[in-house]
Write a protein that binds this DNA or RNA. Structure first.
Length: 225
DNA sequence: TGCCAGGCCGGGT
DNA sequence: ACCCGGCATGGC
């Protein structure tokens, strides 16, 4: 049965990759930018996040020490286009405090540290404002840890195509499904998540049509949500 | 025009 | 252990 799941997940990936090609998600951006974006994107359109990041760049705020020094209310104003800007400013500050406080203000130091992925994950989850998805996004895309990111699109696609039952999706279960049945390769995890978002945006949004979905003819695709 | 976007927290049952 | 309201802007 494990082989079936592995083959299913692999086939899904191949179908998505054939349709959309490499996504190169969060390309050309520094790990710092990635980590900041992970918080700003919470329940928010990425387009809005780009505006906020552009404002941060203009202000010279894409750097941990600068973020540490700026007053929270100024930071809030800068990231306003991302929405929820008051809470996100607080959450960003919490992350900054973690990076600057005990980790020298550089993600590179963290990335090279001997800590296990699980240890880093627990630390991130201990920060107010960082939940499972934000933590895993930072781990995978900024700290180069082989951890699978689950988001609403992942859940929708998984539900739609029978990877999981009709029951409410548990983050951990879905995460484990991918991690336990795929080779634990960072690049694969990065691309897989990005491809799930790509197909999710086009075909698994509430209004989106299934027609033209590259997974349309995929096995077990008839079950809904 | 309304609905939605790559969550998470805190308080109430 | 769930369930819910709150948080906010900008694009289609």
């Amino acid at each position: 049965m494990q082989g079936d799941t592995s083959a299913l997940l692999r086939g899904l990936y191949d179908a998505l990759y054939a349709a959309y090609g490499p996504q190169g998600w969060w390309p050309g951006e520094t790990p710092t930018e990635v980590a900041i974006g992970a918080i700003l994107v919470q329940n928010t359109n990425w387009q809005n996040v780009e505006k906020a990041i552009a404002r941060l760049r203009e202000a010279g705020m894409l750097e941990w020490r600068a973020l540490d020094a700026v007053p929270a209310e100024d930071l809030a104003e800068l990231i306003r286009p991302a929405g929820y800007y008051q809470v996100k400013a607080r959450r960003l500050k919490n992350l900054v405090r973690w990076v600057c406080g005990e980790h020298g203000g550089e993600l590179e130091e963290l990335r090279r540290s001997a800590r296990s992925t699980d240890a880093l994950r627990e630390e991130l989850l201990g920060i107010n404002g960082i939940g499972p998805e934000t933590a895993d996004s930072i781990l995978l895309y900024a700290l180069e840890q082989a951890t699978f990111v689950v988001d609403t699109y992942t859940a929708r696609v998984a539900g739609r195509h029978g990877l999981i039952g009709p029951e409410a999706v548990d983050y951990g279960e879905l995460k484990a499904l991918f991690e336990d049945h795929l080779p634990r390769e960072i690049e694969l995890f990065k691309e897989y998540h990005a491809l799930l978002v790509a197909v999710g945006k086009r075909h698994c949004r509430p209004q989106a049509r299934c027609a033209g979905c590259p997974l349309e003819c995929f096995p077990r695709s008839m079950s809904v949500e």
